[in-house]
Amino acid sequence: MSTTAIPTGTKWWSGGKSPFNVSYGKVMMWYFLMSDAFTFGAFLISYGTIRFSVNHWADPNHVFNAFPFAGHANLPLAFVSLMTFILIFSSVTMVLAVHEGHKMNRKGVEKYMLLTIIGGIAFLSCQAWEWTHLITGDHAVLVNGQIEHWGTTVSKNPWGPEVLFNGKEIATPGPIAFGGYFFGITGFHGFHVFSGVIINIVMYIKTKLGHFDQRGHYEMVEKAGLYWHFVDLVWVFVFLCFYLV
């Protein structure tokens, strides 16, 4: 096959108008996000069908009441609120980074990208602590007339209905779907945050190396921003489904 020589100055796209009036890269990102929304949608809908087909579900105020270094203080949803705040704040810094990009201000982009990356890592660290706390937890559960000590894992749920045993209220095993969906979906979301952090680090390095200044625009930062906001938006739904409902 011969290689067709393309004359100097030939435009790649010599006309027509994009129906959405945005670059192909952004169209691609939007369609990818739509596709990814279907992935998360399938997970969350599956979670919903199973959750509402069982008689008992763990009370989030019970399960998520711990806070690092706070001992056994009962602080329902305090830690996850902090996590949510961190993630949403990182979205704010992302918006500022994109804004600085529009102004072609490299130093500003660098500053806010760095803050976004720190926010993402902070969120992931919080999630790591929360998972560890749940998995290594120690809850008395009445199993076949015996008291066992369980953590919350994909196949063990110590948050079932409570019964009276030797005059004491004690939990029985709950539906094991709880752990599967919780770790499955927050894990999948965490994986997205992790990918986002990697993407943001790449963007940060490219900004530092001046790639976008050479190119004349910071569109890649904007695209990374779209992804980052999407990941935050998904968290809002995850937060709603697992912590608030």
Binding site: M34, S35, S46, G179, Y181, G184
Partner: peptide, 25 residues
């Protein structure tokens, strides 16, 4: 394809978990 394959991906991931991680979706 872009809007329907991701749902199979979700289904396949849950199935892989059921097979290998002891969940029961």
């Amino acid at each position: 394809g872009v809007l329907s394959f991701p749902v199979l991906l979700s289904g396949a991931i849950l199935l892989l978990f059921d097979r290998n991680l002891g969940t029961s979706f």
